[in-house]
Design a protein around this nucleic acid. Structure first.
Lengths: 190, 190
DNA sequence: AAAAACAATGAACGCCGTTCAGTATATTTG
DNA sequence: CAAATATACTGAACGGCGTTCATTGTTTTT
């Protein structure tokens, strides 16, 4: 039953986006009363956590190929490229994972968060591997990782939340690509 | 009357944040009926645009001292530092300006957007001035500005939307400071 | 067959943004 | 002056939202 609800929720989320999902149309989709949902989920937040888990899983899958690259520097670059690519291709999922405010209280004990932590750890480890192999002079893996993440997240979130309107629409992706190339070049000097 | 409504809205926004503002409690604050608001504002969006303008003005004021620095490289650094500082100190205002989804349709003809464009232009011009004075070898002012913006916005928005929970609370600001120093160093190699 | 546990719901509550017919007051007009 | 018009405002409602709860059927246990 829980999985039936989740499946419906995910489908509606994919079709109509975050704002299109609500308890009433999920209930309608599975042909139950809205009240029934509350027998299987404490509230809407708990349901969203599950959606977030789905998003985290989708993201992990999207990043997976990068994770298998041997050379840490190439791995880092591909990881970054794929992270950004995921954000641009699945704005709703990215939004749910990294922007949405709603279900963020007490997230640390949720599956989705653990999955995110794991991915983040992998990212930091890759930076550390680059340091170990002398790709960077700097030795602060945490700060390097965070800096790169901020840049990538900044690009995706400014795009998703439509704060790039000063650039003509057809130039936005190009600018992002140029910026990614630039941060890679900048990172080489670290 | 319009300004009376706005004043109340802004006050409530400051006190209770974005989610705490609604048509009913604004009306209550000025001791009118909710319906009255609709005589002076088309809808909630139009009211939010006004709030966004206030936020944009507050941000501009926060950045103003940086704008008066002669040396473009120092100006750029101080501008960045102040931008981030504004975000951390006024998360609600920053959120309204750069993250909130709600009132983003047809924003290009709103005052707040024009103010934002102006500030953005100033930023790009400062980068261009750095290029002209040979602080950068690279000559693509637009991409440089965008890259730096993405990093700054990434830091602030990850913080505001609570995606830094993997770092202990007391370390977050420190990490942001380190990252800012790092991006400055990286920029020096551009 | 009676008792207990479970599954599901209709109807409601309180919140929200928004609309509109209607009222009370001020202004203009003949 | 009274009548007509314009202005300012509102109560009550609509539809949508998340959520709760007494009640109803149904199944399982005793």
């Amino acid at each position: 039953m829980r999985s039936m609800i989740l499946k419906a929720a995910l489908r509606i989320f994919r079709e109509k986006g975050y704002d299109g999902v609500n308890m009433r149309n999920i209930a309608e989709a599975i042909e139950y009363s809205p009240a029934t949902l509350y027998l299987y989920f404490k509230d809407k937040n708990e349901l969203y956590f599950a959606l977030q888990f789905e998003a985290a899983a989708a993201k992990r899958e999207h990043l997976l190929p990068a994770m298998q690259i041997e050379d840490p520097w190439q791995r880092l670059i591909d990881f970054g490229r794929r992270y950004i690519d995921f954000g641009f291709k699945h704005p709703d999922l990215y939004d749910l994972l990294f922007i949405t405010r709603a279900p963020m209280e007490h997230i640390e004990n949720q599956e989705c968060w653990l999955l995110g932590i794991a991915t983040h750890k992998f990212f930091v480890d890759t930076v550390q591997a680059c340091i170990d192999q002398r790709y960077f002079k700097s030795t602060d893996a945490e700060t390097i990782a965070y800096t790169l993440w901020c840049h990538a997240h900044g690009m995706v979130s400014l795009f998703i939340r439509e704060r790039m309107r000063m650039y003509p629409e057809e130039k936005r992706l190009e600018l992002a690509a140029k910026s990614f190339a630039m941060i890679v070049r900048m990172a080489e000097s670290l």
